[in-house]
Nucleic acid binder design. Structure first.
Lengths: 194, 194
DNA sequence: TAAATACCTAAACGTTTGTTTAGTTTAATG
DNA sequence: CATTAAACTAAACAAACGTTTAGGTATTTA
């Protein structure tokens, strides 16, 4: 009776983090609603039963996909934190973000921004929490960088940080429909205002 | 036999442009996919049969809703065209746009931008055509205004017009999740260097 | 008032949705 | 090698989707 937990009968034939990343790519391209379990089965290469036993339901799988996305883009944030060129780092961050948005020729935008838009009218606490976490974190990072200019007042810093978050938001949306040249012009002009 | 077309048996108990506006508001709030025929029936106050006989199908109703949206926001464009304060007019246009986006306390964004996002991955010629029409028209209007400054070079004008279209795009997305104060700061900063 | 026909109600259509369940296969343990 | 339990396959589930159809109602014209 008590030993049951220790008995391994058969190992999973897939790694959860591997199939989650595949699911994430599908959600990224199509959004939550427009991605069906049938599509997920095919893309992930495992059966519906396996999906449900590993992630509970579609919603749980989506939450795990968001985490997978964060892991995927984490290297940008690391590079961002480890550099010390002030505002220039933020611009670099913007360019890196756009490159991810246009990954592999697809115009998928940013999964977080897409999710923000798709869920903004719904009331989903778990998703909202993930979103707020992401956005607040981003804002804090911008504030830190802006503080490297000692001449700036606190109020100016907050205003500029907010400006940058919105610009990033808009950029992610624009990256789905605009050309590379248009995006580049947009970024350059955005930073002329700082 | 030949007179059948002239005989009016019973008049419609609804006006098409009236129920379309109601449908438009629902699409505006929820997007195309997330709005079901059941919801539309309830909101429009007419039966499914009536919807199908008037608009063909859900897609046809959505296209009519887009046109209804254009009629609704048209007064902003008229005010924009009839004023002669150059760049200041564009800023005014941005503020007016945001006010519509936040209509009645709801944070619905801009129907065109929302649609742009929802349909960007699909291949829907009719929708794409409507979108491009709207966006190109907007860009042309911006270009006209920017030309009122005779000192500006042609290349600068094009670059700035493009910048403004993307900013408008981002603003519409941001208006769904950001506060009025944040939006205002964002607009002011956007126009700082034009 | 009677005939004609467009409109409306309401039920049903076939798919597809997310989710569950029963039955089979696989592999680790005693 | 037999036992055991987890992981697999595949079929079925109810509910909701967009769409269609049949039958009753209402109103205009002659």
């Amino acid at each position: 009776m008590y030993l049951l937990l220790e008995i391994m009968a058969r190992k999973k034939q897939y790694q959860e983090d591997v199939v989650v990343e595949k699911a994430m790519n599908l959600f990224w391209r199509n959004g939550f609603e427009a991605t069906s379990m049938q599509m997920l089965e095919k893309e992930m290469g495992i059966n519906k039963f396996s999906i449900y036993s590993s992630f509970g339901n579609k919603h749980g799988l989506f939450l795990e996909s968001l985490k997978s996305y964060k892991r995927k883009v984490n290297f940008i944030f690391e590079a961002f934190k480890n550099s010390n060129n002030g505002i220039e780092d933020i611009k670099e961050f913007f360019y890196n973000s756009v490159n991810i948005c246009k990954e592999a020729g697809n115009q998928k935008g940013c999964l977080v921004t897409n999710t923000y838009n798709e869920f903004s009218e719904k009331e989903d606490e778990q998703i909202q929490e993930q979103m707020n976490l992401f956005m607040n974190n981003l804002k804090e990072l911008f504030i830190d960088k802006l503080k490297s200019d000692a001449n700036k007042e606190e109020a100016t810093i907050l205003k500029q940080a907010n400006y940058l978050v919105l610009a990033k938001h808009g950029l992610a949306a624009a990256s789905r429909v605009n050309s590379e040249k248009e995006i580049e012009d947009y970024i350059e002009m955005t930073f002329q205002n700082l």
